[in-house]
């Protein structure tokens, strides 16, 4: 029952992102007479400091947050899993080198490396995806490595080895299916994290450039007009938090469902 609310929010987010391009939206259309007007005054969620409809901008912003997080998580998940699983399966010096590389990437605090990368690469959609993926793969690699380490001496793996299967085949066919559950849970939380990170980069002016709306840059623009029209900060912020909260709640449920803690304790 408690899963319906979060699911509904995620579905709305998805629909906004996928159907957005076909909706009659004018995120950059300026109505001078409505500058800073609050919700209800001709537009559902009011207008911003240039007289643009906040509803239209939030929906277009949803597209960016959705596709950026989807892309980044797909890239990070596949690259990280492949690197981590190969590292654990091959072992030896390969594993040593990869563990060191993972340690080095983990030594950069949170979003700092993404900020530096996005800042140096310059603004733009693809550069955000690159910056966030460079930071994002590490978590998946570490998790996949830990999982494969505990599985690689299983009998079915030995059987596959004796049948002459190569490392790639064993990793993809015999190990990946067993480690998917925790990785999917991790990926769910990563989506929430990337939505915040993308908005954070845009908030700092390092993300998608104006006039294209992003929730982060909308919050930044809004914080300059807080006393006059707090709705400019509240609207994109609430959209962002609803999505992050919903994804996190779903991740929590998914984790309970898959019972990773019990599996780890064995």
């Amino acid at each position: 029952m408690r899963i319906w609310g979060p699911t509904a929010i995620v579905v709305v987010w998805l629909l906004m992102a996928v159907l957005g391009p076909w909706l009659p939206l004018a995120p950059n259309h300026i109505e001078l007479e409505h500058i800073l007007a609050g919700p209800g005054s001709g537009a559902l969620l009011g207008f911003d400091d240039l007289g643009r409809s906040l509803w239209d901008r939030v929906v277009v912003g949803a597209q960016f947050s959705f596709f950026v997080s989807l892309l980044v998580v797909s890239i990070s998940l596949s690259a990280g899993t492949l690197i981590g699983a190969s590292s654990a399966y091959l072992g030896g010096w390969v594993d040593h080198v990869i563990v060191r590389i993972i340690d080095i990437f983990l030594a950069f605090p949170g979003i700092l490396l993404a900020i530096a990368l996005a800042g140096l690469l310059g603004p733009g959609l693809s550069n955000i995806v690159i910056a966030l993926s460079i930071v994002g793969w590490v978590g998946f690699a570490r998790l996949a490595r830990a999982q494969v380490l505990s599985l690689r001496h299983r009998e079915h793996v030995q059987a596959a080895q004796m049948l002459g299967a190569g490392p790639l085949r064993i990793i993809v066919r015999h190990l990946l299916p067993l480690i998917m559950a925790p990785l999917i849970v991790e990926a769910t939380f990563a989506i929430a994290g990337i939505v915040i990170a993308e908005a954070g980069l845009s908030f700092l002016g390092l993300g998608i450039q104006p006039p294209t709306p992003s929730w982060g840059s909308m919050i930044r623009d809004g914080s300059r007009y807080m006393l006059v029209s707090p709705h400019m900060v509240l609207v994109p912020g609430i959209a962002l938090i609803l999505v992050v909260l919903a994804v996190n709640l779903l991740g929590d449920r998914l984790r309970d469902r898959m019972d990773i803690r019990l599996r780890e304790r064995k």
Binding site: A192, I196, A199, G200, F203, G216, I219, R220, G222, S223, M226, V233, G237, L240, I241, V244, L245, N248
Partner: peptide
């Protein structure tokens, strides 16, 4: 779930 850049302005 609340990011710093929204918590702060709030």
């Amino acid at each position: 779930s609340i990011p710093h850049f929204w918590m702060g302005p709030l």
